[in-house]
Computed example of a mutant assay.
Amino acid sequence: MNSVYHLDLDSEKIQGAKIALLPGDPFRSQVIAETISGIYGTYNRKLAWKREFCTYLAEIKGKRLLITSTGIGGPSASIAIDELAQLGIDTFIRVGTTGAIQEHINIGDVIITSGSVRLDGASTHYAPIEYPAVAHYEILNALVEGAKKATVRYHVGVTASSDTFYPGEERYDSFSKYVLRRFQGATKEWQRLHVLNYEMESSTILTLTASLGLRGGCITGVVNEGGTGKITKESLKAGEENVIKVAIAAVECLI
C-alpha cells in the first residue's frame, strides 16, 4: 500500500480515483463534495485533513474522484500534485477564485486558463522558466463544455499567476503601501498583452502536470468588481458558486 506524508492519504483510501479537483480553501473541499452529492445523490466522505490539505472522496456517474485543497500559492500546490500523482491520480483541475484585470469580465464569470504567466518560483523546481505552463487540451475542452452546460458566462485565455497576493499582483493596499519597481505598472502591461486575470496557483499546477505527463487545467470564479481589486462577500459567493458548478459539469464531460 502506497502512502504519502503531507496529505495523510494512501492508495487504499482513494479507492481507485484518478481525477482530483483542487480548491485552494480547505473548507471549499467539503462544499464541493456536498454539492456533488446533492446533484448526483451519491455519497461523500472526508478522508484526511492535515495542515492546508483537506481531502474528500466523492462520486460522479460511478467514477470516484478526490477533492483536495492546496492552500495558497505554488509551494503547497506542488506538494499536493506530486503526492496525489504518487498515489495514481492523473487528472488535476484547479477550482479557485480570481481577480479579473479586464473590464469586460464580470463578477460571477469564470475564467478558463489556457496558459499562465509564470510569476512563481515553485514551478521552476520542476521545469525551467522557458517551459510553458499550459492546460491539457482535453481538460480545456471539458471546462468549456462544462461552462456551456452550466450556462455560466466564461472566458478562455492567459492568466498571470503570482507567488504573492500583494506586490506580485501590484496591490498598494498592503502594510507597506509599496510595490517593488519590477511590479510597478505590471497590471497595465498584462492588460495590454490580453492577460485576463491574477491568481496564485495555476502556473505551478499547469507546469507540473504538463512536465510530468499528467492532465491539468484551471478554472476560477471572478470575485472582484469591474477589473478592480475590490472583493465583497456577495462577489465571493457568486464566483465560488459558479466555478464549482462548471467544474462539476466538466468532470461529467470527462467521464
Results as ranks from 00 to 15, higher is better:
residue 25 D to E: 14
residue 26 P to A: 13
residue 27 F to G: 12
residue 27 F to Q: 14
residue 29 S to A: 14
residue 29 S to Y: 06
residue 30 Q to S: 13
residue 30 Q to P: 00
residue 31 V to I: 15
residue 31 V to K: 15
residue 32 I to N: 08
residue 33 A to L: 05
residue 33 A to R: 05
residue 33 A to D: 03
residue 33 A to E: 01
residue 33 A to S: 13
residue 34 E to N: 14
residue 34 E to H: 13
residue 35 T to L: 02
residue 35 T to Y: 14
residue 36 I to H: 04
residue 37 S to A: 15
residue 38 G to V: 03
residue 38 G to Q: 13
residue 39 I to C: 01
residue 39 I to G: 06
residue 40 Y to K: 11
residue 40 Y to G: 08
residue 41 G to M: 08
residue 41 G to D: 08
residue 41 G to H: 04
residue 41 G to N: 11
residue 42 T to S: 14
residue 42 T to N: 11
residue 43 Y to E: 13
residue 43 Y to K: 13
residue 44 N to P: 02
residue 44 N to W: 06
residue 45 R to E: 14
residue 45 R to Y: 04
residue 46 K to R: 15
residue 47 L to F: 07
residue 48 A to P: 08
residue 48 A to D: 03
residue 48 A to T: 11
residue 48 A to Y: 11
residue 49 W to S: 15
residue 50 K to E: 14
residue 50 K to I: 08
residue 51 R to Y: 11
residue 51 R to C: 07
residue 51 R to T: 02
residue 52 E to I: 06
residue 52 E to K: 11
residue 53 F to Y: 15
residue 53 F to A: 09
residue 53 F to M: 05
residue 53 F to Q: 10
residue 54 C to K: 09
residue 54 C to A: 15
residue 55 T to S: 13
residue 55 T to H: 05
residue 56 Y to Q: 00
residue 56 Y to A: 00
residue 56 Y to M: 00
residue 57 L to T: 01
residue 59 E to G: 04
residue 59 E to Q: 13
residue 59 E to D: 10
residue 59 E to C: 10
residue 61 K to E: 15
residue 61 K to V: 12
residue 61 K to S: 14
residue 64 R to P: 00
residue 67 I to F: 08
residue 67 I to Y: 07
residue 68 T to H: 06
residue 68 T to W: 06
residue 69 S to N: 11
residue 69 S to Y: 06
residue 69 S to L: 09
residue 70 T to I: 11
residue 71 G to H: 13
residue 71 G to Y: 11
residue 71 G to S: 10
residue 72 I to C: 04
residue 72 I to S: 08
residue 72 I to Y: 05
residue 73 G to C: 10
residue 73 G to S: 13
residue 74 G to T: 09
residue 75 P to L: 12
residue 75 P to S: 12
residue 77 A to E: 07
residue 77 A to F: 05
residue 77 A to D: 09
residue 77 A to L: 14
residue 78 S to L: 05
residue 78 S to W: 06
residue 80 A to Q: 03
residue 80 A to N: 05
residue 80 A to W: 03
residue 80 A to M: 03
residue 80 A to S: 10
residue 81 I to S: 04
residue 81 I to M: 03
residue 81 I to R: 00
residue 81 I to W: 00
residue 82 D to Y: 09
residue 82 D to H: 11
residue 83 E to C: 02
residue 83 E to D: 07
residue 84 L to T: 00
residue 84 L to C: 01
residue 85 A to S: 14
residue 87 L to K: 03
residue 87 L to G: 02
residue 87 L to R: 09
residue 87 L to H: 01
residue 88 G to Y: 06
residue 91 T to P: 01
residue 91 T to R: 00
